[in-house]
Amino acid sequence: ETQAGIKEEIRRQEFLLNSLHRDLQGGIKDLSKEERLWEVQRILTALKRKLR
């Protein structure tokens, strides 16, 4: 995994995270989306740690 590859994956995950946040802010309670949001946040945290 290169730095560029990790950064690209971070961009993808952040896009997905923002999309999930928008969907959930629409007021629709969706447990699967909430679980996915937490999963994406965990992935992002792990990726950012790899960059250090």
Score class of each variant (00 low, 15 high):
Glu1Ser: 12
Glu1Phe: 11
Glu1Ile: 09
Glu1Lys: 05
Glu1Thr: 09
Glu1Leu: 11
Glu1Val: 09
Thr2Phe: 08
Thr2Asn: 09
Thr2Tyr: 11
Thr2Ser: 07
Thr2Met: 10
Thr2Leu: 10
Gln3Leu: 15
Gln3Trp: 12
Gln3Asn: 07
Gly5Tyr: 14
Gly5Pro: 03
Gly5Phe: 14
Gly5Ala: 15
Gly5Glu: 15
Ile6Ser: 01
Ile6Cys: 03
Ile6His: 01
Ile6Asp: 01
Ile6Thr: 02
Lys7Leu: 15
Lys7Trp: 12
Lys7Met: 14
Lys7Thr: 04
Lys7Ala: 12
Lys7Arg: 13
Glu8Asn: 06
Glu8Thr: 03
Glu8Gly: 05
Glu8Val: 04
Glu8Gln: 08
Glu9Asp: 05
Ile10Trp: 01
Ile10Phe: 01
Ile10Asp: 00
Ile10Tyr: 01
Arg11Gln: 06
Arg11Phe: 04
Arg11Glu: 06
Arg11Ser: 05
Arg11Pro: 01
Arg12Phe: 05
Arg12Thr: 03
Arg12Trp: 03
Arg12Ile: 07
Arg12Tyr: 09
Gln13Asp: 03
Glu14Ala: 04
Phe15His: 14
Phe15Tyr: 09
Phe15Asp: 15
Phe15Asn: 15
Leu16Pro: 01
Leu16Ser: 01
Leu16Ala: 02
Leu16Asn: 02
Leu16Lys: 05
Leu17Thr: 00
Leu17Asn: 01
Leu17Gln: 03
Asn18Leu: 10
Ser19Leu: 11
Ser19Gln: 14
Ser19Ala: 12
Leu20Ser: 00
His21Asn: 08
His21Pro: 01
His21Val: 13
His21Asp: 04
Arg22Gly: 06
Arg22Tyr: 06
Arg22Leu: 10
Arg22Ser: 08
Asp23Gly: 05
Asp23Ala: 11
Asp23Pro: 01
Asp23Cys: 12
Asp23Ile: 06
Leu24His: 03
Gln25Asn: 07
Gln25Pro: 03
Gly26Pro: 04
Gly26Phe: 08
Gly26Ser: 14
Gly27Thr: 08
Gly27Lys: 02
Gly27Gln: 06
Ile28Lys: 08
Ile28Thr: 10
Ile28Tyr: 05
Lys29Ala: 10
Lys29His: 11
Asp30Cys: 04
Asp30Thr: 03
Asp30Lys: 02
Leu31Tyr: 09
Ser32Arg: 13
Ser32Thr: 08
Ser32Tyr: 12
Ser32Lys: 12
Lys33Glu: 02
Lys33Pro: 06
Lys33Tyr: 10
Lys33Asn: 05
Glu34Met: 15
Glu34Tyr: 15
Glu34Leu: 15
Glu34His: 09
Glu35Ile: 13
Glu35Lys: 14
Glu35Leu: 11
Glu35Ala: 11
Arg36Gln: 13
Arg36Tyr: 05
Arg36Phe: 06
Leu37Asp: 01
Leu37Tyr: 14
Leu37Thr: 02
Leu37Gln: 02
Leu37Val: 09
Leu37Asn: 01
Leu37Lys: 03
Trp38Asn: 12
Val40His: 03
Val40Arg: 01
Gln41Lys: 14
Gln41Thr: 09
Gln41Ser: 07
Arg42Asn: 08
Ile43Trp: 03
Leu44Gly: 00
Leu44Asp: 00
Thr45Ser: 11
Thr45Gly: 05
Ala46Met: 12
Ala46Ser: 05
Ala46His: 06
Leu47Ser: 01
Lys48Asn: 05
Lys48Met: 06
Lys48Ile: 13
Arg49Asn: 13
Arg49Asp: 15
Arg49Gln: 14
Arg49Cys: 09
Lys50Phe: 04
Lys50Ile: 15
Lys50Asn: 06
Leu51His: 02
Leu51Arg: 00
Leu51Met: 03
Leu51Asn: 01
Arg52Lys: 12
Arg52Cys: 15
Arg52Ser: 13
Arg52Asn: 13
Arg52Tyr: 14
Arg52Leu: 15
